[in-house]
């Protein structure tokens, strides 16, 4: 299946092209942009990123780990300190809080790596260093007979250039 790589200058044009392509049923596409632009990201995928579930799970795990660890350890090795109960809640708030943040942060990072599919791997053929300069790109995989149509469509949507990657 051939892949068409088109290059754009402006984020709005890119987002519009993605929406038009999707509207015509070309769903197998990927965008490349040098900076975050919500309109492009939303055109690719409307739903909010799944990273948020990771943070929530991490935070909850952290708060329970923090408090249960302290309470259990204080009961396991009971010492009376400065008149406080063994499991004395006010001081334990602090480590409970720190672990909430710690676990939440680590899980957020893991979520980022998983959701963004980030691990050392070969780059897409369609990707080039111009997309880490100031240009935007769309790579769309189309059937052989649609190439001309998509090419014309992209050009009409102010694509600077369109290249064909064949494989």
């Amino acid at each position: 299946m051939p892949t068409l790589v088109s290059v754009f200058d402006l984020p709005d044009d890119t987002a519009l092209a993605i929406r038009k392509l999707k509207g015509r049923g070309f769903d197998d596409l990927e965008s490349y942009s040098p900076a975050p632009f919500e309109q492009i990201d939303d055109a690719i995928d409307e739903r909010p990123s799944k990273v948020r579930a990771f943070t929530l799970v991490g935070g909850l795990t952290g708060v329970f780990t923090g408090f249960l660890m302290q309470i259990w350890m204080s009961w396991e090795w009971p010492i009376k300190i400065a008149g406080k109960n063994f499991a004395s809640i006010p001081p334990y708030v602090i480590i409970g809080f720190e672990l909430t943040i710690l676990f939440g942060g680590i899980l957020t990072l893991i979520g980022f790596l998983l959701v963004g599919r980030l691990y050392p791997r070969p780059l897409d053929k369609a990707y080039s260093s111009r997309f880490s300069a100031e240009e935007f790109g769309i790579a769309v995989t189309v059937g052989d007979r649609d190439v001309a149509e998509v090419d014309a469509l992209l050009r009409s949507l102010s694509a600077k250039e369109v290249t064909l990657l064949d494989d």
């Binding site: 993605i18 975050p36 632009f37 990201d41 690719i44 799944k50 959701v115 963004g116």
Partner: peptide
């Protein structure tokens, strides 16, 4: 690669 999905996650 700065794909839409990656930026969204980022």
């Amino acid at each position: 690669q700065g794909t839409g999905r990656q930026w969204k996650a980022h």
